[in-house]
Design a protein around this nucleic acid. Structure first.
Lengths: 205, 205
DNA sequence: AACTTTACCTAGCAAGCGCTTGGTGGAGTG
DNA sequence: CACTCCACCAAGCGCTTGCTAGGTAAAGTT
């Protein structure tokens, strides 16, 4: 019995946004998992899209499920970082607009499939798995809820009570765009963001 | 070569909400497809949940995919009927509130898995399939968009332009609840509906 | 120069998959 | 009582699935 694969696994030394085997796998997986779903994507398809043989995937990851986990982790980390940066150093309403824009860019732009996979493939993970991802997700939600509370205090939010439900409604309105948004209509995530913000923000008194 | 299964298939003589084989299969499929997803549900699990052997499914349906289609059709038809009925004979804002309530009940209540499957399993259908379901879906969306236009005319909608985007945002906010709503919190779909309506409706002038 | 590690490839196994086939008991019909 | 039809069951076929085992050429290390 050979030593377990796990023992030799690299954690991404640089980023996984590189041309290394790991990086190529994660990018290909993000695209396929988003387009076809996790279960409907076979390791053979995935390997071909990453430019290697199916067996080689298991040199980099112990299982198919761990590839899904890696996709989600990367998506969550990148969007969180982008949105958190947009929050800094602006008035609440301006911050909010920037955050919405970054969030939509993070789920709608080309080669930004990771976060969409994270949003819609949660149930492909067995009950115990993905605690790390779950924690990241909660942190991300807290970021938004805090922002909504700031807007409520300034009287700029459309509904002055229920910040939790407001956040859920907002996230629904934003994340649903994954289901219908198609870039070729002349829309961009930025323009969509501007319009959607207008639904939730109240004019200054 | 035996005659194809299709030739012997019954269209639901009464409703499929009965205890017939077909009805049992559709109900079990709705629950499993929602909980685990279409691909992750095997015909053996599905058969067991419906109280029969796996082969027997194919006496009632020509393929697993046709079971999915039947689930979606039933869900779409029932919710459409319920929401369309709520629209009748009320002032626009009151209609709207009733519609939102019916929609949420249709996707959140126990044994109402069909519509949720319809919302989140579209990509499990191959490109050509489900034209019937797609048409039903478009009709349903038109129903909502008309309602939003009526509210805009009365000055009761939170955003006076962009009825299409308003509809998409609203649907997102409502449909996202499938991902997070859990009944045991003391919430009900009806209460959730009331709060979410307040986000989108404007007070009468 | 000798050795180890990295980054894969090749071949294939065991399990599970959707679906088919050939029945069969019971109810309905003439 | 003979016949037909309905609603399934029992068994299994052929294929695909995630994953494993063993190998290897090239690069890095000592």
């Amino acid at each position: 019995m050979a030593p377990r694969n796990q023992l030799r696994l690299r954690r991404s030394s640089t980023s996984d946004r590189d041309e290394s085997g790991r990086g190529r796998i994660i990018r290909a997986a993000a695209r396929l998992f988003r387009e076809k779903g996790f279960r409907a994507t076979t390791v053979r398809e995935l390997a071909e899209a990453a430019g290697m043989q199916s067996g080689s995937l298991f040199y980099f990851f112990p299982s198919k499920q761990d590839i899904l986990l890696a996709v989600m982790e990367q998506g969550m980390a990148e969007v969180h970082a982008s949105v958190a940066a947009a929050k800094e150093g602006r008035a609440p309403a301006a911050s909010f607009r920037a955050m919405v824009r970054r969030h939509l860019e993070g789920i709608l732009e080309e080669d930004s499939d990771h976060m969409a996979v994270m949003l819609y493939e949660t149930r492909s993970l067995p009950a115990g798995a993905g605690k790390q991802v779950l924690k990241m997700r909660r942190d991300y939600e807290a970021l938004w809820e805090a922002q909504i509370e700031a807007l409520i205090q300034q009287g700029r939010w459309c509904h002055p009570r229920e910040p939790r439900l407001s956040r859920l409604a907002l996230m629904g309105a934003l994340n649903w765009s994954v289901q219908w948004y198609r870039p070729q209509r002349g829309d961009t995530p930025a323009r969509l963001a501007a319009t959607l913000c207008a639904l939730f923000l109240r004019e200054p008194a």
